[in-house]
Design a binder for these strands. Structure first.
Lengths: 200, 200
DNA sequence: TTTATAATACCGACCGGTCGGTATGTTTTT
DNA sequence: AAAAACATACCGACCGGTCGGTATTATAAA
């Protein structure tokens, strides 16, 4: 078995994910992670140089997973595509449920650390550009009003971030998928050139 | 002089605000706060029962300040009122600049602590209801489409939260006041019954 | 007004415990 | 046997909170 090392590493990361999500980064000790993973401290520090290191690794893993999930999202037209994206929300909340609180924590650290801030700003701008391109496509295909794509993308991203934050804070406070699709529809009736009969 | 006590308390809170904003809650020790405030640890624990207590006190102060700023916000019509609110953003960023990172931290803690979550959810719902009422007024005065007020309020609050988060993370990444007013206008063209010529 | 009494505000040394990280030894893989 | 993977014991710094005691201020009796 050449995999033993990888298995151990994976177990450590899974344990860390669970504990970080439950109690937060600061409230979770390396010892706890080791215990949860059924692994010694030596093993931990063999795989990760520091506590922060595993945190960063977790975040990067999540970004990759998110990007994968967004690969096949194009629908017949842009409004439909945007609306379709809201269907991903429960999926995101389900599969990445444990990652979300960690992301929030990562944002927090970004506020205090220049390096981390740069790291988190990059994927964020990536998504903003992605949406801006979608808007442009929508304008090209004639389903969207003529509008500043960057500004519109900004609105969408802000909305998404806001919904995400609230979803993290108060998961059972609302049916977030429903809220998200309603929000997009409201937004769309402002963005859409005319009523194009949006439906799920 | 019974004021000595109040002065001390104020100094402690100001010092804590500064340090929390710079380094974050966890990275700031009570000793540091005392040193920054030029006060002993005994004085600190005389005024605040715990480190968490001063954190909560800081948050509550901020909410009160925010509410005060929102007192006189009604304009000639609802869309104008909403648009006007975006003018408050630089003010918020200016006066509450030091509070904002703390707020993010508060959200984070809320995710792990039931009590704190309840405390933060209350004002948040307060604002949601406030906006819902504004929407209803707008419908009544005929400047807004017929729409589910709660859903529309949700969109606005989500948007606001999203903008706030981004503003905290990347204060100089954009002219957030401009972004905010553009966002509201985009949203409004979806909410507004017809083009009513919005302008600042 | 002065003095006695009580209450409040403040001081700073100290403690129990935790935590991230290391040093060193043992087992497993190559 | 050499190297990688893992285990155990331990260190030193730090941190939130306590506590016995001391100023300072308010209240009231003399």
């Amino acid at each position: 078995m050449q995999q033993r090392s990888e298995i151990t590493r994976k177990r450590i990361m899974e344990a860390a994910t669970r504990l970080f999500a439950n109690a937060g980064y600061n409230a979770t000790s390396v010892d706890q992670i080791c215990k949860e993973a059924g692994v010694s401290k030596g093993a931990f520090y063999h795989h990760f140089s520091s506590k922060q290191a595993i945190f960063v690794a977790l975040f990067e893993d999540w970004i990759v997973a998110l990007d994968d999930g967004m690969k096949e999202m194009h629908k017949e037209n842009i409004p439909q595509t945007l609306l379709y994206l809201t269907n991903m929300i429960p999926l995101i909340f389900e599969t990445a449920d444990e990652h979300l609180p960690i992301v929030l924590e990562y944002w927090l650290l970004a506020g205090h650390d220049e390096v981390i801030r740069a790291a988190i700003l990059a994927p964020y701008r990536h998504y903003q550009d992605l949406f801006a391109k979608l808007i442009e496509e929508g304008m090209a295909e004639g389903t969207l009003k003529t509008i500043n794509p960057q500004a519109a993308a900004q609105v969408i991203v802000s909305l998404a971030v806001g919904l995400l934050i609230q979803g993290i804070l108060d998961p059972k406070g609302a049916d977030w998928q429903k809220v998200a699709s309603e929000s997009i529809q409201i937004l769309m009736n402002g963005l859409g050139k005319e009523d194009i009969g949006l439906s799920l």
